[in-house]
Nucleic acid binder design. Sequence first.
DNA 1: TTGTATGCGTTATCAA
DNA 2: TTGATAACGCATACAA
Lengths: 354, 354
Amino acid sequence: MTSPTPAPSATPGTPRARATIADVAAEAGVSKATVSRYFNHRERLLSPDIAARVEAAIAKLAYVPSPMAQALSHGRSRLIGLVVADITNPYSVAVLRGAEKACQEAGYLVMLFNLGNDRERERAAIDALASYQVDGFILNTLGQGEGLADVNTLHGKPAVLVDRRHAGLAADFVALDNEAAMRETCAHLVEQGWQSLLYVTQPLQGVSSRLERTAAFRACIAAQGPKVRGEVLEIDAQQGEDALARALAEFREREGSKVRCAVVAGNSVVTLRVAAAVARLQWTFGQELGFVGFDDPEWAPLIRPGLSTVAQPTDAIGQRAAQCLLERIGGLQGAVRENLLPGTLIVRGSSLGV
Amino acid sequence: MTSPTPAPSATPGTPRARATIADVAAEAGVSKATVSRYFNHRERLLSPDIAARVEAAIAKLAYVPSPMAQALSHGRSRLIGLVVADITNPYSVAVLRGAEKACQEAGYLVMLFNLGNDRERERAAIDALASYQVDGFILNTLGQGEGLADVNTLHGKPAVLVDRRHAGLAADFVALDNEAAMRETCAHLVEQGWQSLLYVTQPLQGVSSRLERTAAFRACIAAQGPKVRGEVLEIDAQQGEDALARALAEFREREGSKVRCAVVAGNSVVTLRVAAAVARLQWTFGQELGFVGFDDPEWAPLIRPGLSTVAQPTDAIGQRAAQCLLERIGGLQGAVRENLLPGTLIVRGSSLGV
DNA sequence: TTGTATGCGTTATCAA
DNA sequence: TTGATAACGCATACAA
């Protein structure tokens, strides 16, 4: 009680500092090294009785090693740096969720850096994360070769790319199998009798997922032969929703009233805007316009007659990304791996034939 | 060039390790302490010429102090621990976004821990975060007194509570002004001629925001006198959407066809479920059922004739939370602060009179 | 099998 | 004003 040294007594109420390895060593009557070994080389080189004493001391003091100190000493921090292009995007969040979960389960914590779609900050993000000695990166960001010029940028840490590839960066990659999903989507629409397809996408801007989906769409159209027509429309955030409405109206007029027209939306952002435009036009999905959208927002069933969508296995993507990264952190060598996960076409009313 | 020691030369290609304070000291021909002072006490106790030399060395080596080492030595990590109850909830994400942004701008990084609605992990979350020496916590979680028994749990670090209060925890609090928002909502509905109001909420379960909104609803009804009736309905995730549809139908039948009935949804989760139930009933908002929902999901304008909502200033809430916390970290003492931010009633078609 | 000593990158205390 | 030097909490050679 009157001891001048802050003895780690079990005084509740006193928010005493965390026990350190030295406290445990003293409590168990062994050296710090022994306590350290208890954690790192347990069975291999520790006698049972000593191990038991250490274990008891650890339990008594509720000792938990400091990851910061471990990071300083040993290099590893059990920290994963997660850079996301836009945390406003539900897709990113869904992936983040899966990744964070997998990391948590593996005893890693996630440090988050949101770019807010600002490419300039990408380099800063990685540097900031690296300064905390993260063991690796999960990157859902960019398209161009701007920030991530080369592996050097990553400070020698492993990384996994999610959803968006990067030319200069040889890293494991996890994403939706865009080509297969697009094939299934187009096949379904054609089968249901839609004859002219309009693929609406956000500006390509070198974003690999957008490029791939667009290319896959064009390939599908080409494969169908002359009986099916296809167009691509890029929209950007600037133009209002009536600009899109006009574009859709023109599309239908161009094709003529005999031709059944459908839209394929490149992601949930586009889906929202198309739905708004269609509402403004007073059209009904499945009638004036067929529809399938990539991503499956929770409100898709609410827009009559229900929006058909391609659901991404976001949780699996996130978990797979984390798993890939953890394997690399664990020392796995070898060629870059490519994980293309299958989407699920959810057919609701908007894509059905009349 | 031929120096055997790994001189920090500007060899690109070689992923050389980060420069340390010792490298800078050597480069500038001063001691490590001097370099440290350059960062921490710059002008106060450093001669201009030495400062210039240090500055040059820092620039040349692109030196950045290691936050990990700083944390070890000096206690502060420039890390904020963010615990969120459910990252699937767009509200949480929106707040997170504002908070993360503010932290980033202040030079702090955010460590994320998602509870996935699992209360058991709350204590573990805080402990895990604390082990990384976070400087403070932003907590958006729980209701009951389970995990966060007392301030002791926080390892002596400051915290700010977002959206949900906690009885045993005297910490700054940031949230929507639920009472004012509910008052405005009810006044609007009554003014538009809705006579019987049903407040639909997720299970209260001691969650303060749910309790407050429910209490505010009851108070509003009471204040209106006998001309307006009000009921509260708790729904849980278990029951299917037709259970809710039945409940809504019964509600209308009970009140009779003469009485204009409206629903107030407690948050966006409830809004989604009510919208699904109304679709199933083939009702139209604003006709068979009036509607105002807390939270303003992006799809609210798409459900005809447009869903009226109370939008929360999520970004401001997040930023304010971060600001509060950073002030406390900066040493601010004094009584716990309560930040109630105003919501915005967005009137669309669903709440208008006939 | 266990203990001692050293280093990881910083800050802080104490001399000079 | 500046420079040694000792922590900070841990892991790991090395010695015993």
